[in-house]
Design a protein around this nucleic acid. Structure first.
Length: 223
DNA sequence: TGCCAGGCCCTCTTTAGGGCCTT
Protein backbone atom coordinates (compact mmCIF):
# COMPACT_ATOMS: atom_id res chain seq x y z
CA UNK A 1 0.00 0.00 0.00
CA UNK A 2 1.46 3.41 -0.87
CA UNK A 3 2.53 5.43 2.13
CA UNK A 4 1.43 8.74 0.70
CA UNK A 5 -2.35 8.53 0.87
CA UNK A 6 -3.81 12.00 1.09
CA UNK A 7 -2.61 13.59 4.30
CA UNK A 8 -5.69 15.63 4.98
CA UNK A 9 -7.39 14.79 8.26
CA UNK A 10 -10.93 13.43 8.09
CA UNK A 11 -13.49 12.36 10.67
CA UNK A 12 -14.99 8.98 9.81
CA UNK A 13 -18.31 8.82 11.60
CA UNK A 14 -21.25 6.51 12.21
CA UNK A 15 -24.40 7.01 14.27
CA UNK A 16 -26.90 4.57 15.75
CA UNK A 17 -30.39 6.00 16.01
CA UNK A 18 -33.88 5.23 17.26
CA UNK A 19 -35.21 5.08 13.69
CA UNK A 20 -34.91 6.60 10.26
CA UNK A 21 -36.56 10.00 10.59
CA UNK A 22 -35.09 12.77 12.74
CA UNK A 23 -37.83 15.05 11.42
CA UNK A 24 -40.36 12.78 13.17
CA UNK A 25 -38.46 12.75 16.44
CA UNK A 26 -35.95 9.94 15.97
CA UNK A 27 -32.73 10.59 17.87
CA UNK A 28 -29.08 9.56 17.88
CA UNK A 29 -28.33 7.01 20.62
CA UNK A 30 -24.66 6.41 19.82
CA UNK A 31 -21.90 8.24 17.97
CA UNK A 32 -18.67 6.58 16.93
CA UNK A 33 -15.92 8.39 15.07
CA UNK A 34 -12.34 7.92 14.01
CA UNK A 35 -10.00 10.82 13.35
CA UNK A 36 -7.81 9.77 10.45
CA UNK A 37 -4.71 11.40 9.00
CA UNK A 38 -3.40 9.48 6.04
CA UNK A 39 -3.56 5.88 7.22
CA UNK A 40 -3.03 6.78 10.84
CA UNK A 41 -5.80 6.79 13.41
CA UNK A 42 -5.15 9.84 15.57
CA UNK A 43 -8.08 9.53 17.94
CA UNK A 44 -11.35 7.68 18.51
CA UNK A 45 -14.70 8.91 19.84
CA UNK A 46 -17.45 6.67 21.20
CA UNK A 47 -20.44 7.77 23.29
CA UNK A 48 -23.87 6.42 24.07
CA UNK A 49 -26.58 9.08 24.28
CA UNK A 50 -29.65 8.79 26.48
CA UNK A 51 -32.78 9.73 24.50
CA UNK A 52 -35.88 11.20 26.17
CA UNK A 53 -37.89 8.03 25.52
CA UNK A 54 -37.52 4.26 25.47
CA UNK A 55 -36.06 2.81 22.29
CA UNK A 56 -37.94 0.08 20.45
CA UNK A 57 -37.24 -3.62 20.72
CA UNK A 58 -36.41 -3.58 17.03
CA UNK A 59 -33.57 -1.11 17.60
CA UNK A 60 -32.40 -3.02 20.68
CA UNK A 61 -32.15 -6.18 18.58
CA UNK A 62 -30.55 -4.46 15.61
CA UNK A 63 -27.86 -2.58 17.50
CA UNK A 64 -27.45 -4.51 20.71
CA UNK A 65 -27.92 -1.18 22.50
CA UNK A 66 -30.55 -1.63 25.20
CA UNK A 67 -32.64 0.75 27.27
CA UNK A 68 -30.68 -0.50 30.29
CA UNK A 69 -27.43 0.59 28.66
CA UNK A 70 -28.86 4.01 27.86
CA UNK A 71 -30.46 4.86 31.18
CA UNK A 72 -27.21 6.08 32.73
CA UNK A 73 -25.74 7.55 29.55
CA UNK A 74 -25.26 11.32 29.23
CA UNK A 75 -27.82 13.32 27.28
CA UNK A 76 -27.36 14.76 23.83
CA UNK A 77 -26.25 18.31 24.87
CA UNK A 78 -23.24 16.96 26.77
CA UNK A 79 -22.23 14.42 24.13
CA UNK A 80 -22.69 16.80 21.21
CA UNK A 81 -20.54 19.41 22.98
CA UNK A 82 -17.78 16.79 23.35
CA UNK A 83 -18.29 15.71 19.75
CA UNK A 84 -17.96 19.29 18.46
CA UNK A 85 -14.63 19.54 20.30
CA UNK A 86 -13.52 16.25 18.75
CA UNK A 87 -14.42 17.04 15.14
CA UNK A 88 -12.92 20.51 14.84
CA UNK A 89 -13.47 21.74 11.29
CA UNK A 90 -12.35 18.58 9.54
CA UNK A 91 -14.43 17.06 6.75
CA UNK A 92 -16.57 14.00 7.46
CA UNK A 93 -16.61 10.56 5.88
CA UNK A 94 -19.53 8.17 6.32
CA UNK A 95 -21.20 5.23 4.58
CA UNK A 96 -24.41 6.61 3.08
CA UNK A 97 -23.35 9.96 4.43
CA UNK A 98 -26.72 11.61 3.84
CA UNK A 99 -28.18 9.51 6.66
CA UNK A 100 -25.52 10.37 9.24
CA UNK A 101 -25.47 13.98 8.12
CA UNK A 102 -29.19 14.53 8.64
CA UNK A 103 -29.06 13.04 12.16
CA UNK A 104 -25.91 14.95 13.17
CA UNK A 105 -27.45 18.10 11.71
CA UNK A 106 -30.62 17.52 13.71
CA UNK A 107 -28.78 16.96 17.02
CA UNK A 108 -26.47 19.95 16.56
CA UNK A 109 -29.33 22.20 15.47
CA UNK A 110 -31.22 21.35 18.67
CA UNK A 111 -28.41 22.93 20.66
CA UNK A 112 -27.62 25.77 18.28
CA UNK A 113 -24.28 24.27 17.26
CA UNK A 114 -22.83 24.89 13.79
CA UNK A 115 -23.39 21.96 11.46
CA UNK A 116 -20.62 20.32 9.46
CA UNK A 117 -21.27 20.58 5.73
CA UNK A 118 -18.36 18.81 4.09
CA UNK A 119 -19.25 15.11 3.85
CA UNK A 120 -17.64 12.35 1.77
CA UNK A 121 -19.64 9.20 1.16
CA UNK A 122 -18.01 5.77 0.86
CA UNK A 123 -21.25 4.33 -0.53
CA UNK A 124 -21.24 6.81 -3.37
CA UNK A 125 -17.53 6.36 -4.05
CA UNK A 126 -17.81 2.55 -3.99
CA UNK A 127 -20.69 2.71 -6.48
CA UNK A 128 -18.51 4.80 -8.79
CA UNK A 129 -15.41 2.61 -8.52
CA UNK A 130 -16.45 -0.99 -7.90
CA UNK A 131 -18.70 -2.64 -10.43
CA UNK A 132 -19.05 -6.21 -9.24
CA UNK A 133 -19.89 -6.48 -5.51
CA UNK A 134 -23.26 -8.17 -4.94
CA UNK A 135 -24.44 -5.01 -3.15
CA UNK A 136 -22.97 -1.90 -1.54
CA UNK A 137 -23.77 -2.51 2.11
CA UNK A 138 -20.88 -1.66 4.42
CA UNK A 139 -20.54 -5.29 5.55
CA UNK A 140 -20.46 -6.53 1.95
CA UNK A 141 -17.82 -4.01 0.90
CA UNK A 142 -15.65 -4.89 3.92
CA UNK A 143 -15.71 -8.50 2.74
CA UNK A 144 -15.31 -7.54 -0.92
CA UNK A 145 -12.13 -5.59 -0.16
CA UNK A 146 -10.78 -8.24 2.23
CA UNK A 147 -10.78 -5.79 5.11
CA UNK A 148 -10.76 -6.81 8.75
CA UNK A 149 -14.35 -7.05 9.94
CA UNK A 150 -15.11 -5.59 13.36
CA UNK A 151 -16.36 -8.08 15.97
CA UNK A 152 -19.83 -6.56 15.57
CA UNK A 153 -21.84 -4.55 13.08
CA UNK A 154 -24.38 -1.85 13.97
CA UNK A 155 -22.34 -0.36 16.77
CA UNK A 156 -21.19 3.13 15.99
CA UNK A 157 -17.44 2.89 16.57
CA UNK A 158 -17.19 -0.56 14.98
CA UNK A 159 -18.97 0.67 11.86
CA UNK A 160 -16.88 3.86 11.82
CA UNK A 161 -13.68 1.77 12.01
CA UNK A 162 -14.82 -0.35 9.08
CA UNK A 163 -15.88 2.71 7.11
CA UNK A 164 -12.40 4.11 7.78
CA UNK A 165 -10.83 0.94 6.38
CA UNK A 166 -13.08 1.15 3.34
CA UNK A 167 -12.19 4.82 2.86
CA UNK A 168 -8.49 3.94 2.90
CA UNK A 169 -9.03 1.05 0.50
CA UNK A 170 -10.85 3.35 -1.92
CA UNK A 171 -8.05 5.92 -1.68
CA UNK A 172 -5.46 3.22 -2.16
CA UNK A 173 -7.20 1.68 -5.17
CA UNK A 174 -7.44 5.03 -6.95
CA UNK A 175 -3.79 5.77 -6.27
CA UNK A 176 -2.58 2.37 -7.45
CA UNK A 177 -4.87 2.10 -10.46
CA UNK A 178 -4.19 5.59 -11.79
CA UNK A 179 -0.69 6.28 -10.51
CA UNK A 180 -1.30 9.13 -8.09
CA UNK A 181 1.36 9.90 -5.52
CA UNK A 182 -1.00 12.21 -3.64
CA UNK A 183 -4.77 12.19 -3.64
CA UNK A 184 -6.47 15.52 -2.87
CA UNK A 185 -9.89 15.36 -1.24
CA UNK A 186 -11.21 17.70 -3.88
CA UNK A 187 -10.66 15.01 -6.50
CA UNK A 188 -12.76 12.54 -4.51
CA UNK A 189 -15.52 15.13 -4.48
CA UNK A 190 -15.36 15.21 -8.27
CA UNK A 191 -15.42 11.40 -8.46
CA UNK A 192 -18.55 11.35 -6.28
CA UNK A 193 -20.26 13.90 -8.49
CA UNK A 194 -19.29 12.30 -11.79
CA UNK A 195 -21.42 9.87 -13.77
CA UNK A 196 -20.20 6.30 -13.30
CA UNK A 197 -19.04 5.92 -16.91
CA UNK A 198 -17.01 9.15 -16.71
CA UNK A 199 -15.03 8.27 -13.59
CA UNK A 200 -12.23 6.46 -15.45
CA UNK A 201 -11.62 9.36 -17.82
CA UNK A 202 -11.80 11.86 -14.98
CA UNK A 203 -9.17 10.03 -12.92
CA UNK A 204 -6.86 9.37 -15.87
CA UNK A 205 -6.91 13.06 -16.78
CA UNK A 206 -6.37 14.13 -13.14
CA UNK A 207 -3.43 11.73 -12.80
CA UNK A 208 -1.90 13.04 -16.00
CA UNK A 209 -2.31 16.65 -14.82
CA UNK A 210 -0.78 15.73 -11.44
CA UNK A 211 2.28 14.19 -13.11
CA UNK A 212 2.61 17.23 -15.36
CA UNK A 213 2.44 19.61 -12.40
CA UNK A 214 5.00 17.55 -10.53
CA UNK A 215 7.41 17.80 -13.48
CA UNK A 216 6.82 21.56 -13.60
CA UNK A 217 7.59 21.83 -9.89
CA UNK A 218 10.75 19.73 -10.24
CA UNK A 219 11.84 21.83 -13.23
CA UNK A 220 11.40 25.11 -11.39
CA UNK A 221 13.31 23.83 -8.38
CA UNK A 222 16.25 22.38 -10.22
CA UNK A 223 16.16 23.88 -13.70
C1' DT B 1 -59.15 6.17 5.81
C1' DG B 2 -54.79 7.03 4.40
C1' DC B 3 -50.55 8.45 5.41
C1' DC B 4 -46.15 6.33 6.67
C1' DA B 5 -37.81 8.90 4.51
C1' DG B 6 -34.97 10.68 1.24
C1' DG B 7 -31.56 10.74 -1.99
C1' DC B 8 -29.33 8.12 -5.28
C1' DC B 9 -29.15 4.83 -9.06
C1' DC B 10 -30.70 1.87 -12.79
C1' DT B 11 -33.61 0.81 -16.60
C1' DC B 12 -38.25 -2.60 -19.29
C1' DT B 13 -36.59 5.84 -18.40
C1' DT B 14 -36.79 10.79 -19.29
C1' DT B 15 -44.59 12.68 -19.24
C1' DA B 16 -41.68 6.79 -14.27
C1' DG B 17 -41.12 3.38 -11.16
C1' DG B 18 -38.79 0.53 -8.20
C1' DG B 19 -34.71 -0.98 -5.53
C1' DC B 20 -30.90 0.17 -2.56
C1' DC B 21 -28.76 2.00 1.74
C1' DT B 22 -28.75 4.00 6.25
C1' DT B 23 -31.42 2.73 11.76
Amino acid sequence: MPNSLQHETVIVVDVETTGMQPEKGDRVIEIGAVKLRGQQVLERFERLIRPDFLISQEIESLTGITNNMLQDAPGSPQVMAEFVDFIGTYPFVAHNAAFDQKFIDAELTLFGRPRPTNFYCTLQLARRLYHDPINYKLSTLVQYKNLTPAPTFHRALADAEMTAQLWLAINNDIMQDYGFTFLPLELLKKVSAAAKEQVGDLLRKAAKDARHNQLDTTGSLFG
